[in-house]
Write a protein that binds this DNA or RNA. Structure first.
Length: 354
DNA sequence: TTAGATGATTATCG
DNA sequence: CGATAATCATCTAA
């Protein structure tokens, strides 16, 4: 059958009317060429594609499949605070999964490019073949190639899109700090509680105090802020739960004070290199004793409502002492929406990758 | 295995 | 912007 094709083609090429046919085709083409040029839809500016490319590059999914075997393992230092802060194990897990994604991405990309090349070649050959029968300008071939590349590029964009989503999910999975929360060290909680209970009347450390606490506890300043935020709210929520802790730490500071005052200093306060004007920490204010009295007042069983002392203002908020009001608080009440409108919160995790 | 403790995040307010 | 209140997700002791 291919003989037939070859034969007809050959016959056509040698036909005596061929030049005439060719010129007619040229004429028709001349009329329709404007419409071809009209289809100049070559491309959206591709801001989206650019963003995807940038992100893939930033995540290390694109080009350089770095093979840093051997030397990279030793380069894992401790956090500035002190503890080793693990992360090498999960980090390797993360990198393994990222590498998997990258492999998939590259193999798919390679497949697409291969297919694109083959298809382009095929079409080009076809057009060149036809150019002997009908007029086909190089610009037209160029245009066809451009169209093909555009199509394949849109396919690649889908690939990049899904790869980006996979990487984002991976990042969210591993980088969400809540997923690998670690309790603070004894030292850190000690330092924080010490400050909190010796400043019960105003447990709002200044920025410098936060830095100092962070340094002494081996944690970050924002962790100090988080801790104080949590502590204030939870202490206020029910103070009876913290009574024991309070007595422990207030007693501790009291003992420390007497020790320091009595024998010069035998138990050296943890390295106060920071002898600024305000000193390490301000001494206990006169209001703290009162607060402790409030605590004790709340602790008393006092079966009917909180004690009278419980109404004294605590920090900024004049209400709420440890004992929840039996009238207004309904532990078993149907919590449909709660006092705060929590929306469905779609896609927890895609935040925070700037 | 589970309930409570706890560090971090989110939404909202001044 | 920092504080608060609620909530999430993990850790830990029983």
């Amino acid at each position: 059958m291919s003989h037939d094709v070859l034969y007809t083609k050959h016959a056509l090429n040698c036909h005596r009317m061929k030049p005439a046919l060719f010129s007619v085709l040229c004429e028709i083409k001349e009329k329709t060429v404007s419409s071809i040029h009209g289809i100049q839809e070559v491309g959206p500016p591709d801001a989206q594609l650019l963003r995807l490319d940038n992100m893939l590059l930033a995540e290390g999914v694109s080009r350089p499949e770095k093979q840093g075997r051997g030397a990279s393992a030793a380069a894992n230092a401790a956090t500035p605070g002190g503890r080793p802060n693990d992360s090498s194990l999960e980090h390797s897990d993360y990198r393994a999964k990222l590498s998997q994604i990258r492999q998939m991405y590259h193999s798919e990309l390679e497949k697409y490019e291969q297919a694109c090349r083959e298809f382009t070649m095929h079409v080009t050959n076809l057009l060149q073949e036809q150019s002997r029968i009908r007029p086909v300008s190089p610009a037209e071939i160029e245009h066809m190639v451009g169209v093909i590349h555009g199509k394949f590029q849109s396919i690649q964009m889908q690939l990049k899109q899904s790869t980006c989503e996979a990487v984002m999910a991976l990042r969210a999975r591993f980088l969400d700090a809540r997923r690998k929360r670690q309790n603070f060290s004894k030292q850190a909680t000690e330092v924080l509680n010490e400050y909190f209970y010796s400043h019960l009347s105003n447990p709002y450390p200044s920025e410098e105090a936060k830095e100092e606490l962070a340094r002494r506890g081996g944690i970050t300043v924002s962790q100090v802020s988080n801790w104080f935020g949590n502590k204030r709210i939870r202490y206020k929520k029910n103070m009876r739960k913290f009574q024991e802790e309070a007595t422990i730490y207030t007693a501790k500071t009291a003992v420390d004070a007497t020790e320091v005052r009595g024998s010069g200093r035998q138990a050296s306060p943890p390295s106060m290199s920071h002898s600024s004007s305000s000193g390490p920490f301000p001494l206990t204010g006169p209001g703290d004793a009162l607060i402790r009295l409030q605590t004790l007042a709340c602790v008393q069983p006092s079966p009917r409502g909180g004690g009278l002392l419980a109404q004294v203002s605590l920090w900024h908020n004049p209400k709420a002492c440890g004992v929840p009001d039996p009238v207004t608080s309904r532990p078993g009440a149907p919590v449909v929406a709660g006092p705060r409108d929590r929306r469905p919160q779609p896609h927890r995790g895609l935040r925070k990758l700037s």
